[in-house]
Amino acid sequence: MNTVIFRTIAPLIVSIMLVFSVYVCLRGHNEPGGGFIGGLIAASAIAIFGMSSGVERVRAAIRVDPLSIAGFGVFIAGLSGLMSLFTGSPFLTSIWLYLDLGETVLPLSTPMIFDIGVYLVVFGTISAIALALEGEGGDI
């Protein structure tokens, strides 16, 4: 696993995968994709990164404990559902906001926030598992 080629290429692959995962997550509402897939891609990227550069470097790079990311995901997913309280509709009723930026219209919505929450949960949880299994010198 620790070959020179792998170590050299890994950061490139990882960064491409992470960007791609965000792209997949955000386009999910209209094209194939979504939070689950995006999160899995990002988690795979972290797993690859961990294999190539060691768990400690990955932990240093993402700064936050992955499980906290997952917790934050559940939190904002729930929060996006609570937004509907302001319009007096039932929990998780979606709210859409179309921002006119001149050249294009940017649709913002609570389902988008919800999907980002899903993304973060899957990403955080599976990264945490992968890092924990990879780490600690072969003795988990």
Binding site: F36, V122, I126, I140
Partner: peptide, 20 residues
Amino acid sequence: ILTAIVIGFAMFSFLLVLAY
């Protein structure tokens, strides 16, 4: 199925670590 796959995977990981 989409959620089932992800949950199935989470369960699989859990059982794997439990078995270990």
